[in-house]
Design a protein around this nucleic acid. Structure first.
Lengths: 134, 134
DNA sequence: CATGTGCTTTCCCTTTACGTAAACTTACTG
DNA sequence: CAGTAAGTTTACGTAAAGGGAAAGCACATG
């Protein structure tokens, strides 16, 4: 039986929806971040909800500063993990912990830098203030 | 009179101290992030405390994800600001506010992503748990 | 049926932030 | 004085993440 009609979307619409270009989506497939996409009868790529979620996830990780290459090794591990659950999962946990640590570090750095900038800002604002009152 | 002996340092030592390469330091000068460096009689670059601070600041901004090009425009604005204080300072405040906003956004995103990862992690850990108890 | 729109692949181009090698000085050191 | 370590400039190379153009299908539409 034919699958219950999945909502499929074409690359152009998807790109517009995500605010990226079609090139980017094809690029992610090209380097193996996406796995070969299903095609319509005419050969056009089509994406379902899972595919969309995956791309969104990639974009999120990217925004975080994780490189596409790093994502690839993560993806590899997850794929392996699908095959023999027991042995590989601890490794996945390790990787996740490592990334949590990295994220924590980044947050801390950003916060401290934020403070620096705020201080800088108020020093300048004070200067302006004292000037105008003379 | 000769300046009170400033502590000067050569490029190699400085690079090692900062954990970067000499190429990087020369590159920052090359693109105008650093201004032409003073030279020893032999022509070797030498850096004082201010120079070192400046490079450290650059590295900090870089770690934050600000591109060298963005830093250049920031530097431009600050340099202009040194010349006619009154007119340019509001613009500097604007830029700083803008960057504070960006940093806030990044922190928020990272925090939410951190939560995602942590949740993911505990779901996997639970799976492992329930498996081993069967 | 011509035309337009959106898709396809292939291929070369671009930017960022340096790496790296070549060829040459300067300065110390045995 | 020969050697070596650290510096110099010039210039080409590289990895990452796509951009953009060319040439060709597929499908809808006046």
């Amino acid at each position: 039986m034919p699958k219950p009609q999945e909502p499929l979307i074409q690359i152009g619409k998807l790109a517009k929806q995500l605010g990226i270009t079609t090139r980017t989506i094809r690029y992610y497939e090209e380097i193996g971040l996406m796995g070969p996409s299903k095609r319509s009868s005419g050969g056009a790529r089509s994406y379902n909800r899972d595919d969309v979620l995956r791309i969104k996830f990639i974009l999120k990780l990217k925004e975080l500063g994780i490189s596409l290459k790093e994502m690839l090794t993560l993806a590899d591990t997850f794929d392996t993990y699908n095959q023999n659950f027991d042995t590989i999962t601890p490794r996945v946990l390790e990787i996740l912990d490592l990334h949590i640590g990295k994220v924590d570090d980044k947050i801390a750095n950003l916060s401290s830098l934020r403070d620096d900038i705020v201080n800088y800002r108020s020093r300048i604002a004070e200067l302006l203030q004292s000037q105008s009152s003379e």
